[in-house]
Design a protein around this nucleic acid. Structure first.
Lengths: 131, 131
DNA sequence: GCTTTTCCTACCTGCGCGGTAGTATAATAA
DNA sequence: TTATTATACTACCGCGCAGGTAGGAAAAGC
């Protein structure tokens, strides 16, 4: 039941930007150095955050990334879902109406409750709460 | 952030025993058939539950497994930890005193909070709650 | 046109999940 | 005492995916 490096690194990038950007574009290179993460690997992760519309980018010399919104407007759950995919602890809820056996499955309510508890927590925090 | 089949199958076995055993020994074969899980794979999972002291076993003809305690005495978190290992969402808390950088890590409190929320939930439920 | 950056795609590698297989050991029934 | 039915134990295996590496194209500033 581990969160992968994608989610953790994504959060680290967002925190780094929130603390160091001040409205300016910050190069991935400098973030990678500060966070001690491979530059090239971070490229993939930032690409996901970018596709989700969470960042503004500038190419070329003195380009980089900055936050598209204020830190308090980023829900932690959203950041993690953008990079980790689904946060659900099982696949019981995937698909159209979820698992077809959910009505006679004795475990379903447990997993649903766990899913709720996790999502409620992650949706209750914003990036600003971490600074 | 998925729970593996080990944890899910372990819970299925415990539920199956609680519902079908009534103090008698139940063969893995019949559990595997009811739950539609590979007999051989279940052997490995049940071995973990057995080592944890959660089951009583009888070998040979008409042998099998049964619960060692009443359903309300099994905490769900314990069952999952016995098979999944650690339920923590990150490795921040592993080792002697946890991550050495936890004091200046901006994410630490978030992961700790998530870990607490997950464990509080799983420790608040017993096997009896699922029946 | 040179440098610095993002952007995009392809590739690699180890490991753990999710099993399968075979056999030894124990208990019961005939 | 032998056949049958079960657990117990150990070894093995495929393959998907996490966690990267690598190479270059396009954009922007100097």
């Amino acid at each position: 039941m581990k969160i992968s490096t994608k989610g953790r690194y994504a959060l680290a990038v967002m925190i780094d930007l929130a603390l160091n950007s001040h409205g300016n574009f910050i190069s991935l290179k400098s973030i990678a150095a500060r966070q001690d993460i491979s530059n090239k690997y971070l490229e993939q992760i930032v690409a996901m955050l970018n596709k989700a519309g969470y960042l503004e980018t500038a190419r070329g010399n003195s380009g980089g990334y900055r936050l598209a919104k204020a830190p308090e407007d980023y829900v932690i759950g959203d950041i993690l879902r953008a990079t980790e995919g689904d946060m659900a602890p099982t696949n019981c809820f995937a698909g159209e109406d979820g698992c077809e056996k959910k009505n006679d499955c004795k475990s379903y309510a447990l997993w649903k409750g766990l899913d709720d508890v996790i999502n409620d927590y992650l949706n209750s925090k914003t990036l600003a709460d971490l600074l």
